[in-house]
């Protein structure tokens, strides 16, 4: 398998991960009151996992040296 195909598949894996992160049922776990370091859990989870996903995508296309 060549480099670009591997990258495309790594990204596709992140796509699946994102679908899982951003949807029911995981979403319902955070959909509650209370706070997480002063932030609503749902907001903290979505923004946090989103940023993490973007970082992963950047790492896959730019950073990986293998």
């Amino acid at each position: 398998m060549n480099r670009s195909r591997l990258t495309a598949q790594r990204l596709a894996f992140l796509f699946l991960l994102g679908c899982f992160f951003f949807n029911y049922p995981l979403l319902s776990v955070f959909n509650r009151g209370g706070d997480f370091f002063g932030l609503p859990p749902l907001y903290a989870w979505l923004m946090g996992s989103w940023l993490a996903l973007i970082a992963q995508m950047a790492w896959v296309v730019e950073g990986r040296n293998d």
Binding site: S4, R5, T7, A8, Q9, L11, A12, L14, F15, G18, C19, F22, L46, W50, L53, I54, M57
Partner: peptide, 12 residues
């Protein structure tokens, strides 16, 4: 979030 996921599928 949708466009983010689209770009994860950019390779395909």
């Amino acid at each position: 979030l949708g466009p983010t996921l689209l770009f994860a599928l950019a390779g395909f």
